[in-house]
């Protein structure tokens, strides 16, 4: 049987808070729409489409993490490294909105909460971590999946923390925030390991075949130089 609930449903967080996050997410999407124009060209636009499709498909696969708990890919780190943070924001947003509209997965009123946690916090948090790690690691192709592994690992508890902040602002439930925080972070640290493995594996596969398309590698890849030979 397939587990249907992957994202925040309606009802967990009250309507005013959901609306605030809808507006915040809309602002983020507007910025991403502008920024993505600079990241995309005829060669990378199809990769951005493929990344979106892959994340949609991968999110259907819940993997077991602990007794009675499963996790699934969020995809923010993977998308940010493959296609850049602006296009990645749009990619994750497309997945979340289609899941909510077509499959009733993740509430419609809660859609702003989900987009904020996964497409904004997840993507930009991952991107920042990736940039820091890439800076201190050797500039070699096989270190990109390692940096992706770490960014993905941190991304999941980060997105979970973002949910707890939303919970603190506008939960319908009266269960204490500290209780929810401890449970959310400890569970999502485990899910982060799965996220990290899938991210590193997928990055390795793409880097092995089409490293010229990978945003996180293109910027630092050694340029081919044509040198004059003095004879």
């Amino acid at each position: 049987m397939f587990a249907p609930l992957l994202h925040i449903p309606d009802g967990f967080i009250n309507v005013p808070t959901s609306v605030i996050f809808m507006l915040l997410s809309a602002a983020g999407i507007a910025i991403a729409l502008r920024g993505a124009k600079g990241e995309l060209d005829d060669k990378t636009a199809p990769l951005a489409g493929l990344t979106t499709v892959f994340i949609f498909a991968a999110q259907m696969i819940n993997f077991p993490v602990a007794a009675g708990t499963s996790g699934h890919l969020l995809g923010g780190a993977l998308a940010a490294i493959l296609i850049g943070p602006y296009a990645a924001t749009l990619s994750i947003t497309i997945v979340l909105l289609l899941q909510a509209l077509l499959f009733a997965d993740g509430g419609l009123i809660a859609s702003g909460l989900n987009v904020f946690n996964l497409a904004l916090v997840g993507v930009w948090g991952s991107h920042l971590i990736f940039l820091i790690i890439r800076k201190i690691m050797p500039k070699r192709k096989n270190f990109i999946p390692v940096a992706g592994f770490i960014a993905a690992l941190i991304q999941v508890p980060l997105a979970a923390t973002s949910f707890v902040i939303q919970y603190a602002i506008g939960a319908e439930s009266t269960i204490p925030v500290s209780t929810v925080f401890t449970a959310m972070v400890s569970t999502h640290v485990l899910i982060g390991i799965g996220e990290a493995l899938v991210t590193a594996f997928t990055l390795s596969a793409v880097l092995a075949t089409r490293s010229d398309l990978v945003y996180g590698w293109k910027g630092i890849a050694p340029k081919l130089e044509i040198k004059k030979v003095n004879s």
Binding site: A3, F63, S70, I191
Partner: peptide
């Protein structure tokens, strides 16, 4: 492959269930 996915609740649903706020969830209008 999706057919073989784990049917256990995901992280958020599990926490909501264990800590007791899963009952605040409402069905989507769709």
């Amino acid at each position: 492959l999706s057919y073989y996915a784990s049917s256990q609740p995901d992280g958020l649903e599990k926490v909501a269930e264990d800590k007791g706020f899963l009952d605040t969830a409402k069905d989507s209008v769709n």
